Simulated scan of single mutants.
Amino acid sequence: MSWARIMAPLSGGEGDATALAAAVRLAEPFGAEVAGVYTPADVADVMPWMGEGFLGGVQTTALESLKEAAAAGEAKAREAMSHVTYGKNAFVSLQTPVWSGLSAESRLSDVIVFNGDSARGRGPLAEAFQQMVADEQRPVLVARGEFSVGGPIAVAWDGGKEASRAARLALPLLEKASRVVILAAPKASSRTFDPTRLQAYYAARGVTAEIDILPDSGDAAPLLLYAAGKVGAEILVAGAFGHPRLQEFIFGGTTRSLLAAEAPTLFLSH
């Protein structure tokens, strides 16, 4: 298995350089293209708020300000892209309707790369992160620190749909990893599962994986983070939003706890 296109949504902000650098680190071992996709605030989103017959002085000024901000942001995003020395790269600037364009670009990309702030709900791309993970159900890499492709990788698995999907989609990464460790916390899960099943799935595809059974706990996230750190994993593969998002928002959830941590880099899929 391999990847051919790694996409990094760009906002024209300071986080663009981080996202692009991470996208290059992910793409290079596969010879994949890095696509920087400028994702501005959409003028269409404010139209319903203005209502019919909105073309008064204040409203027109507001629209012009949004257009000017989008143009300035695109210039900064292009500048960030110009510093990418990796040869296989492309720049895409989305126009109204922005969210529809972002969805279309993501569906033709293998992995979407975000920085840690976007994943924590901060900055202009926070909504884009939610859209990619939860609505489009695209595999997402949350880049944190100087991760590398080819080092140890930990895979969090509980037998559920989200975790199993992430475990499958991460195979190109796992095939290049120096060590793969399946992290399982049976006593922290409401479902019954056997981690040797995933181990056998990987073995059939040429990936040798170890199993680490984590101790009893009411919250799996601290266990997963500790275990990933213990094996020196630079990337943790995990399912995202295993419960309804409203429930995750109210009660926290493993996904929210993983996103709040400082390390490691996360490979997520819903």
Rank of each mutant, 00 (worst) to 15 (best):
M1A: 14
M7A: 15
G12F: 03
G13I: 06
R25L: 07
R25K: 13
G31L: 09
P48F: 08
V58H: 10
A69D: 14
A72I: 10
A75G: 10
A80D: 04
M81E: 08
V84K: 01
T85P: 00
G87E: 15
K88Q: 12
K88W: 05
V98K: 05
W99I: 13
E105G: 10
S106E: 12
R107Q: 14
L108K: 15
D110R: 02
D110F: 06
V113K: 00
N115C: 14
R120S: 07
G123A: 12
E127F: 11
A128T: 14
F129P: 00
Q137C: 11
P139M: 12
V140Q: 02
F147V: 05
V149P: 01
G150T: 09
G151M: 07
P152Q: 08
A156Q: 05
D158Y: 01
G160H: 04
A163E: 00
S164R: 05
A167K: 01
A167G: 06
L171D: 03
E175H: 05
K176P: 01
S178R: 09
R179H: 11
L183R: 00
A185M: 08
K187R: 15
A188V: 11
S189W: 02
S189A: 15
D194M: 10
R197C: 07
Y202F: 15
G206N: 05
V207T: 07
I213Q: 12
L214E: 03
P215M: 10
L223Q: 09
Y226A: 15
G239M: 06
F241H: 08
R245W: 07
R245N: 02
L246Y: 08
G252V: 09
T255C: 08
S257D: 13
A263G: 14
L266A: 06
F267M: 04
F267W: 04
F267C: 02
